[in-house]
């Protein structure tokens, strides 16, 4: 888990996700967030989700349009994948 090679992969994925928030189509960010969450207990996924919402979300008129979907989605993602991740990390 904490080997230098694994850390490099994690840093690369996190940096890729961060850059994609600003420059790439949203599906790139989503794929990288899922990849990070699958393999690592990646708290950075939460902050990337928050960044997407703060950067792109605008005040909405309906209840659902006011929800920070990517922040909530990131929280669900990192916690929902915890059992699977524990199996992978064994």
């Amino acid at each position: 888990m904490s080997s230098p090679r694994i850390s490099k992969i994690r840093i690369a994925l996190a940096l890729g996700a961060l850059v994609s928030v600003f420059f790439a189509p949203i599906w790139v960010s989503i794929v990288l967030m899922v990849a990070l969450s699958l393999r690592f207990r990646a708290i950075e996924v939460l902050f990337i989700g928050l960044l997407i919402d703060l950067l792109w979300m605008t005040p909405g008129t309906t209840f659902f349009s006011q929800l920070p979907l990517f922040t909530l989605g990131a929280i669900i993602l990192v916690w929902a994948l915890e059992p699977l991740r524990l199996e992978i990390m064994k």
């Binding site: 207990r41 708290i43 939460l46 902050f47 989700g49 928050l50 919402d53 703060l54 920070p68 922040t71 990131a74 929280i75 990192v78 916690w79 915890e82």
Partner: peptide
């Protein structure tokens, strides 16, 4: 500790959003 950190980070992002 990893899971506790994850729990703390989950609350933190919600707090940041609330502050915003």
């Amino acid at each position: 500790r990893g899971r506790q950190r994850l729990l703390f980070a989950s609350f933190l992002v919600l707090v940041i959003f609330a502050i915003d």
